[in-house]
């Protein structure tokens, strides 16, 4: 008998080990999603949509029907799918470039329309797949390939406050939270509640997940965790930002980092 690390039932064992870089946070986010799918017993109803960027590497990650789309376009694909078949539980999975840059109009309008979809957006402060360029989430002073001397807020602004923006443009039924791969159990709860909110047909559900990218950050393990836990949380507050009253009775209170 072979001993394997605990794997969510909804993961596809044939495609593991996965293709993400060592130390990448995507695996943790996808584990949280897999566990949430297992606990809610919705593997047969979920459709997972993944964007371009590192998130595309998850196209065969789950034993769940999956569609890999174009950069920024996962939100509209899942919106169109959900409206065509509301029985499906749809998840749009994307990075900060896909959600906050090239696909912002889709995110903003889906949120405004209160589309009954769940968006999970992985924020690792830069474009991973294309080699570490500045993203809307890059921290002031952070060095990337397109800000080699550090991001200058005078020239390129401050990190986008995604969940706060989504919270401000959605109606009461929306669920909005920011989790982090540094707290996997909390992240799983947020994702689970985002899925439950969609299942209840209440409204748009959005979880930003702070995540790690040691490859492009050029950090060792210690500095990686220091960056996500100390640096990123200076700009990105972890916790639930908007919770429909019906969901608020559960746990998941805001835990500012």
């Amino acid at each position: 008998m072979q001993i394997q690390p605990a794997m969510p039932r909804s993961w596809r064992p044939e495609t593991k080990p996965h293709k993400f870089c060592p130390g990448c946070g995507h695996g943790i986010v996808l584990k949280a999603l897999g566990e949430a799918i297992d606990e809610l017993e919705i593997q047969d109803r979920v459709v997972f949509g993944c964007d371009i960027g590192c998130s595309l590497l998850s196209w065969d990650f789950f034993n769940v029907d999956t569609v890999q789309t174009h950069h920024g376009r996962t939100t509209p694909v899942m919106v169109g799918m959900k409206r065509a078949n509301p029985e499906l539980i749809v998840v749009a999975y994307m990075g900060d470039g896909g959600g906050y840059a090239i696909g912002t109009q889709h995110l903003v309008n889906a949120a405004t329309r209160n589309d009954r979809i769940t968006v999970i957006l992985v924020n690792n402060t830069q474009y991973g797949m294309t080699g570490g360029q500045m993203a809307p989430t890059t921290l002031p002073g952070q060095k990337t390939e397109t800000t080699p001397f550090g991001r200058d807020p005078e020239l390129t602004g401050y990190p986008i406050q995604g969940p706060e923006m989504v919270a401000s443009i959605t109606r009461d039924g929306a669920y909005v939270a920011r989790g982090t791969v540094a707290r996997p159990r909390q992240l799983k709860e947020f994702i689970k509640r985002a899925l439950q909110n969609q299942m209840a047909g209440r409204g748009f559900s959005f979880v930003e997940a702070l995540s790690t990218c040691p490859t492009n950050w050029r950090t060792n393990a210690e500095d990686t965790w220091k960056f996500i836990e100390k640096e990123m949380t200076r700009y990105f507050k972890v916790g639930e930002v908007k919770v429909p009253p019906e969901l608020a009775r559960g746990k998941g209170e805001r835990e500012d980092g």
Partner: peptide, 22 residues
């Protein structure tokens, strides 16, 4: 015909639909 959400649990009753363009 639907491409996703067909009857059965993917990976248990049927293979999952894994549709990609990359």
């Amino acid at each position: 015909e639907p491409y996703v959400g067909r009857p059965g649990t993917p990976g248990v009753d049927r293979p999952p639909a894994h549709l990609r363009n990359a």
